[in-house]
Design a binder for these strands. Structure first.
Length: 147
DNA sequence: GCCAACGTTGGC
DNA sequence: GCCAACGTTGGC
């Protein structure tokens, strides 16, 4: 899951009272659909975009499966969607909790240099803010930084 | 700031 | 349903 740290950062996440947050603001159908597939206890990489270097900061886990994103109904929110309704919500979110942090972030250049990740969605020009990671890719990345 | 990629909108 | 215009994302 990607985020711009200027909007919501890994540090913000760690500072949450229960180190848990809801992932609001996803307004892309493909990204939403990937979130809908997530199950409790699924692990997630937390990625910072729009910074130098872009990097995976650590691991979170899903603690609540997809439910309607309340910001779509809030007229004062940037995420307000006039075409959505509570009866038929268009956008969903999941809750995630902090799990653990990489001792040093795993940067995008490092990922690009790592064999076995060539087909990773993140490395193939995807702007998707929620992306799938295969088990093989996951294991390779975890192995770059032992817990 | 630039620009490529790509999703969305809306006229026809 | 097509497709041009436009907006957004995100690496560099």
């Amino acid at each position: 899951m990607k985020t711009e740290p200027g909007t919501y950062s890994w540090d913000d996440f760690k500072k949450e009272d229960d180190q848990t947050t809801y992932w609001d603001g996803i307004r892309n159908y493909q990204a939403r659909n990937f979130m809908k597939e997530m199950k409790v206890d699924d692990r997630v990489f937390f990625y910072h975009s729009q910074v130098v270097p872009p990097a995976i900061m650590g691991v979170a886990k899903v603690v609540r499966e997809a439910y309607p994103d309340h910001t779509q109904f809030d007229q004062s929110s940037n995420y307000f969607d006039p075409k959505s309704s509570p009866e038929n919500p268009r956008w969903h979110m999941v809750d995630i909790s902090y799990e653990w942090e990489f001792k040093t972030p795993v940067t995008l250049p490092e990922l690009r240099q790592t064999p076995g990740l060539e087909n990773m969605v993140l490395l193939n020009n995807s702007r998707l803010s929620v992306q799938p990671v295969t088990e093989a890719e996951w294991n390779i990345i975890i192995a770059l930084r032992k817990k």
